[in-house]
Design a binder for these strands. Structure first.
Lengths: 143, 143
DNA sequence: AAGTGTAGTGGATAATTGTGGATAACTATG
DNA sequence: CATAGTTATCCACAATTATCCACTACACTT
């Protein structure tokens, strides 16, 4: 399980270190994809395979399902952790998530999220102010 | 599984390099054909055989199904990868997909798509805005 | 409080790969 | 049969990528 928030920096070679606690679970190989709200998702290989399998079953004949599967599958990239536990961020994903130097790596149960630091702060303050409303909806979910 | 987005260029001899990660799976021979949304599909031989089988079973009575099957079957061509992992793009397919110099090679699970770079960018932005809420769709998939 | 160890960051070297050109083989046509 | 044009195989260079190594800073231990 991934939990916690860490701040790291991407060097000029697009390398990003993964927090030590997450490395043990990731096992040298992982898949990085487009995420929600302009962040990136990082999945362990097995979690990704489950997701990809579902995406591949979407009907090819319907334009919007086709587009969705394309965005998610084409947006994904298998990454290897080097000896020091770093991964390479592909250009198009770096651009998609508008990464500058500092990024925030956050554990969200079965996946890892990677945010541009500034966007993360903005998202956090926005969410924190609205957290009262969210709590009410959580009640509906039985939490 | 094919995933990821790569940018390559077609030289003046209509040769196109296939990303290294895809070569291992393709095994020297592949089938290239007309795809949806003005891109090309590239299949491993076995995947193509399965698809061709399905296409041949489409009801002869429906005009659009018949047209789709014709498009893909007649447009298909077997291509060989040379020693450096490049394939030759036939003229009529190059024209169909309106390739200029730069193309995007994209992995979509069991097939590879080849897009003219400009068209891909257009399709991507169009789809990103038109796809609606990605979160909801992921939720439907149980992710 | 000092030393040792671990982890984040940056740089350097070696290997791989994308791209272009050149030569050889084959086909077609006069 | 020969020549011209097209196609295929091979080779070389340049740029990017991957692996390796070193340094620094923080933390924990003794």
């Amino acid at each position: 399980m991934f939990i916690g928030e860490y701040t790291y920096s991407i060097d000029e070679k697009k390398r990003l270190a993964i927090p030590t606690k997450f490395r043990q679970v990731l096992d040298k190989k992982a898949v990085i994809t487009r995420g929600l709200d302009n962040c990136l998702f990082l999945y362990p290989l097995k979690e990704w395979e489950k997701l990809a399998e579902k995406l591949s079953k979407l009907p090819l004949s319907q334009a919007d399902a086709r587009g969705f599967a394309r965005l998610m599958l084409i947006g994904a990239m298998e990454v290897n952790l080097d000896n020091l536990g770093r991964v390479l961020i592909p250009d198009y994903l770096k651009k998609y998530a508008s990464f500058k130097k500092k990024v925030v790596i956050a554990g969200v149960y079965n996946r890892i999220e990677i945010w541009d630091e500034k966007r993360w702060e903005e998202y956090k303050t926005k969410t924190e102010t609205g957290i009262g409303d969210i709590a009410e909806r959580l009640g509906e979910l039985g939490v």
